[in-house]
């Protein structure tokens, strides 16, 4: 529990990261009407997918930063050697990533939806799909960040490594929102979240031991 408090305190002290993901989301969404068309009918059709893709990119963008400071000041090494189980540390890191990068974006989804002329019903289902689906993104992003820790390659490598794993939450999430909450996709997405929550922290923990040894 202490870990979770520490993570939250660190987050509150540096709102810059939250602002950065928010800005990134709004600015990218603003580019789409300029690049494609201002026609609300076309935008409405594309909106769910566009917002999901922007969220995914924001998540990747923040993944690099999520572990870097802990790695550089040596606190990650202490966590690996520390008393708290390592999978719990990794889970807390994923929660931190989700709270800084993704939750703010979900909160302003109505604004993004307005920019893309979404109907309020689709918007509600989009927010639901983001709430259930984005934690999966966070879990994978922290796993990927742990794998590339200290490799000085950053962004592109992370995208190459993670892209295949981000496909299922993306597909199930967008389908769920676009079918206006067809329960089938909801169950699958929730199931994916459960399985990811139960397995990925352990995978990340095993990589953390390797990363610290490097």
């Amino acid at each position: 529990m202490g870990l979770l408090k520490r993570e939250l305190r660190l987050l509150l002290r540096s709102p810059a990261e939250v602002v950065q993901s928010l800005l990134f989301g709004v600015l990218v969404v603003a580019l789409f009407p300029l690049a494609i068309t201002p026609d609300p009918d076309v935008l409405r059709q594309l909106s769910v997918g566009l917002i999901w893709v922007v969220t995914l990119l924001t998540s990747l963008l923040a993944a690099d930063r999520s572990l870097l400071s802990d790695f550089e000041d040596g606190s990650l090494e202490q966590m690996v050697l520390g008393v708290a189980p390592l999978w719990w540390v990794c889970l807390v890191k994923s929660v931190g990533h989700w709270l800084t990068a993704l939750l703010p974006l979900i909160v302003i989804t109505p604004l993004l939806g307005m920019m893309l002329a979404m109907t309020s019903e689709t918007m509600l289902w989009l927010m639901a799909s983001l709430l259930v689906g984005t934690p999966v993104l966070s879990l994978f992003c922290v796993l990927g960040a742990m794998m590339t820790l200290g490799l000085n390659r950053g962004g592109a490598l992370l995208l190459v490594i993670l892209m295949p794993f981000l496909v299922p939450p993306l597909v199930l999430g967008t389908q769920w929102a676009m079918t206006l909450g067809q329960p089938f996709y909801g169950y699958l997405l929730a199931g994916l979240l459960c399985v990811s929550l139960m397995t990925l922290p352990f995978a990340t923990a095993s990589v953390a031991r390797i990363a610290v040894g490097r």
Partner: peptide, 27 residues
């Protein structure tokens, strides 16, 4: 150690492969 990280990635990918195939099929 680099090999071990890549091995974890390959194994996670193998477990994910059916999930990916399934979601792509439904999509």
């Amino acid at each position: 150690s680099g090999g071990r990280a890549a091995a974890v990635l390959a194994v996670v990918g193998l477990i994910n492969l059916p999930i990916i195939k399934f979601s792509v099929d439904w999509w």
